[in-house]
């Protein structure tokens, strides 16, 4: 366990020093800060636009970080042979992969935390600048709404699933292929709803049950997206949060188990 933590810390350190990750986070923070200006374009909706843009930026930049790091973590260590040194130490290969994944998750958590703080700062500033009563009359949703954290939390779980997929794919395919497949999974994961309701469009029972089956086997990534609900002040129940997060955790493990076995069996040439 301590070894896994050590490896994770090293991944986090590498990521924090990576200019690309910095750039992604700066972009997101910049977007959150610029959002109030965009908000002025739509009268009466400025707070909504700030929330929409900030959460979208969190999601997008998080995705970028996860794919960018996820496909490179294991693949790069193998390709650059830095893994040779590490695996000659008293660590098992699965500890190495788990450590890499934990590091990825930690990096994601850090990035999301920074972006969330930026979002709340901007929202707080907007509330103070415009005067809270005026805003409150526009929307019944509080400006610095703690419920936004629910959206951020599910974004984290969603991207952690995507990261596990990226890591899994990168244990046996090239980085480019892994990146393409991961992005494909991200898109396909968002069409779960469409697949499931195909019976309203297509008559063939075979096709519809195949599509529905597929939609349940694939992680339904769209279900992790409660940004709109949270921004509009619609309730997101605790049960929904727990079940969604739990299904995310199951999928993370489902991606990690093959990753561990494949990496353990692999010859590192």
């Amino acid at each position: 366990m301590r070894v896994i933590c050590t490896i994770a810390r090293q991944v986090l350190r590498g990521a924090v020093r990576n200019r690309v990750v910095y750039a992604a986070m700066l972009l997101a923070v910049g977007l959150a800060v610029a959002a109030p200006m965009a908000g002025r374009l739509t009268p009466g909706q400025d707070v909504k636009v700030v929330k929409d843009l900030s959460l979208a930026a969190c999601n997008l930049c998080g995705l970028f970080v996860v794919v960018f790091l996820g496909i490179r973590l294991v693949a790069r260590e193998v390709e650059q042979r830095t893994v040779d040194t590490l695996l000659s130490k008293p660590i098992r290969r699965y500890e190495f992969v788990l450590g890499q994944y934990c590091g990825l998750a930690a990096t994601l958590a850090l990035a999301l935390t920074v972006m969330t703080i930026a979002m709340y700062v901007v929202l707080g500033a907007a509330a103070w600048w415009r005067g809270v009563p005026g805003l409150a009359s526009v929307a019944p949703v509080p400006v610095a709404d703690p419920a936004l954290l629910k959206a951020v939390l599910l974004i984290f779980v969603q991207l952690a699933v995507v990261g596990a997929a990226a890591l899994c794919l990168s244990t046996f395919s090239s980085p480019v292929l892994a990146a393409v497949s991961t992005c494909g999974l991200y898109v396909a994961g968002h069409f779960g709803g469409e697949l499931r309701n195909l019976d309203e469009v297509v008559d063939s029972r075979f096709v519809t049950s195949l599509a529905a089956g597929l939609s349940y086997v694939l992680p339904d990534l769209a279900a992790f997206d409660v940004k709109a609900a949270v921004v509009h002040g619609q309730p997101v129940t605790a049960g929904y949060m727990v079940l969604t997060a739990a299904s995310g955790a199951a999928y993370i493990l489902a991606f990690l188990v093959p990753a561990l076995v494949i990496f353990t069996r692999r010859d590192l040439l």
């Binding site: 968002h190 619609q234 929904y240 079940l243 995310g248 188990v257």
Partner: peptide, 25 residues
Amino acid sequence: LLVTFGAALQVARDRETVDGPAPPG
């Protein structure tokens, strides 16, 4: 087993949201 478990949780979650928010989009 894990995929099945995840899928089961997704189904349970979808049940949960029958009268909750509409499907995405």
